[in-house]
């Protein structure tokens, strides 16, 4: 039901409608409406605490793990409201991969990290697992660097390599969407550049939503940009438009550095 092959209307992957979210009594997201389109990179920007991480974690219902969270509104993922009782969380998280700020590989070998998800999904065949590992690592632009040491511990990799490993791990379960929460904020400029190039390649096959605190990064890599402020979506449009002629004074003030 949630799969890629489903009846997605005109390349819209996510259609968020009137989304509100509270942590206890504090409202962190206020009436959010936006569409995320297929094979596009959507950047989410805004000052700390404006709700970027909360928003992105709602898209795969990771916020469900937080007991005090309450939501209202709808998020259609390929036409299906993810808050519907019939939606299976495992299924949603299989098609929507997530990459975090700090690379978080498991204390296992590089190979085991990549095939972790497929194994959980019941794939045991060694040859098949190796194929998945190779393909995922290649897609994450890491294969050439690790192909001779697949059974070494992942902690021996550099920060940038670990982050690409985490991307490979997400790709191994063949997702449809990749959510990334400040994936380069812990990386140096060279590693950052590699991840940005990777995102640019991945968008041919995946839909990507990325939270970033770097406006330059949003400008470089995204097609659409959403500007959040204190839980509200202030402006959402083509990245080109946002960074040259934003409509809203608050967007203008934020991206020209007057606050935030």
């Amino acid at each position: 039901m949630l799969t890629n092959g489903g009846s997605s209307q005109n390349g819209v992957v996510y259609d968020v409608k009137g989304l509100n979210l509270w942590y206890g009594n504090d409202q962190a997201l206020k009436d959010i409406n936006l569409k995320i389109e297929e094979n596009e990179v959507t950047a989410i920007i805004g000052p700390s605490g404006c709700g970027k991480s909360t928003f992105i974690k709602t898209l795969n219902r990771m916020v469900d793990n937080i007991p005090i969270v309450r939501t209202s509104g709808k998020i259609f993922y390929h036409g299906v409201n993810i808050f519907d009782k019939t939606v299976k969380l495992e299924e949603l998280r299989t098609t929507v991969g997530m990459v975090f700020q700090k690379p978080n590989p498991f204390p296992k070998s590089i190979f085991e990290n990549v095939v972790y998800g497929p194994k959980i999904h019941g794939i045991r065949n060694k040859k098949q697992l190796m194929e998945i590992a190779e393909e995922s690592l290649k897609s994450a632009a890491l294969w050439d660097e690790v192909k001779d040491r697949l059974h070494d511990n992942a902690y021996g990799l550099s920060g940038g390599q670990q982050q690409r490993l985490c991307i490979a791990r997400s790709l191994a379960i063949q997702p449809d969407v990749l959510l990334m929460d400040e994936p380069t904020s812990a990386l140096d400029p060279i590693a950052t550049n590699r991840i940005e190039e990777l995102i640019d390649e991945l968008k041919n096959n995946y839909t990507i939503a990325i939270v970033t605190h770097s406006m330059q990064q949003a400008a470089r890599i995204s097609d659409k940009t959403a500007f959040f402020l204190m839980g509200e979506l202030i402006e959402f449009s083509d990245t080109k438009k946002i960074f040259t002629t934003p409509e809203d004074k608050r967007t203008e003030d934020y991206i020209t550095g007057r606050f935030g």
Binding site: M215, A219, F243, T245, P246, E252, T256
Partner: peptide, 9 residues
Amino acid sequence: QQPMAKHLR
């Protein structure tokens, strides 16, 4: 400064 928006214009 990598100017943006009004600054860039």
